[in-house]
């Protein structure tokens, strides 16, 4: 008999083989795919996010859990009905123009993906007009902006201004993150939210979509 709590625990432990094995077993035992997803996997990633925020889990462990999550979702995807899509929302994400740092941005992408978001990753050194175009092309609900440098922080403001000028600002929520930025800076440039780490970013994005 499939135990969804065991799936949750294996996911937190980042054991990809165990997670996929347990998910497959649950599928074979006719447990509904959306039940496995919501009560086993997403629950596990929520705990991972919380533990990361509290300093009890660290980047390598979070990455292992995220990888296990992706492998498990790949098993479930074909079994989910149209109204049970794993997609929570679409996020256009990238590092601000002039900034080549991507580790934090990639981590946020993985956490969001694990939480069911579709990620359109524009990479590093992304110009404001590229963000605008991606929002239009993909009808995204969230824009994620990352910067590691104090010198590229102002480009976050420029990107938000570009979203306004192109008329798409109202259709997206802008979330920012990165070592030099904080909530005060987010408020100052008119962003909709700030997350200090990947776990918080995932929570914030889910709050926005709920």
């Amino acid at each position: 008999m499939a135990d969804l709590n065991t799936i949750t625990q294996a996911l937190i432990a980042g054991d990809k083989d165990q997670v996929t094995g347990l998910v497959q077993k649950a599928v074979d035992e006719n447990v509904a795919a959306n039940k496995i997803l919501n009560e086993g996997l997403i629950k596990g990633m929520d705990i991972v996010g919380d533990r990361m925020q509290e300093g009890d889990m660290f980047i390598p462990e979070v990455l292992m859990s995220a990888r296990a999550m992706s492998a498990a979702v790949a098993i479930l995807k074909p079994l989910l009905g149209e109204d049970e899509s794993v997609v929570t929302g679409k996020v256009v994400i990238g590092t601000a123009k002039g900034d080549m740092h991507d580790i934090g941005k990639n981590l946020v992408s993985m956490m969001l993906e694990s939480a069911g978001f579709e990620i359109i990753d524009l990479g590093v050194d992304v110009a404001p007009e590229q963000f605008v175009q991606a929002v239009k092309d993909h009808q995204a609900q969230i824009v994620g902006l990352s910067a590691l440098l104090t010198t590229t922080m102002p480009m976050m403001q420029t990107t938000i201004d570009a979203l306004k000028q192109s008329g798409v600002r109202e259709q997206v929520k802008v979330l920012i993150g990165g070592a030099p930025v904080n909530q005060e800076f987010a408020d100052k440039i008119g962003a909709d939210g700030y997350a200090p780490d990947a776990g918080s970013a995932s929570k914030l994005a889910k709050q926005i979509m709920s």
């Binding site: 300093g55 889990m57 660290f58 980047i59 390598p60 462990e61």
Partner: peptide
């Protein structure tokens, strides 16, 4: 102040 878990285990 805090030991970062760059390896983590």
């Amino acid at each position: 102040e805090f030991v970062l878990g760059m390896h983590s285990q």
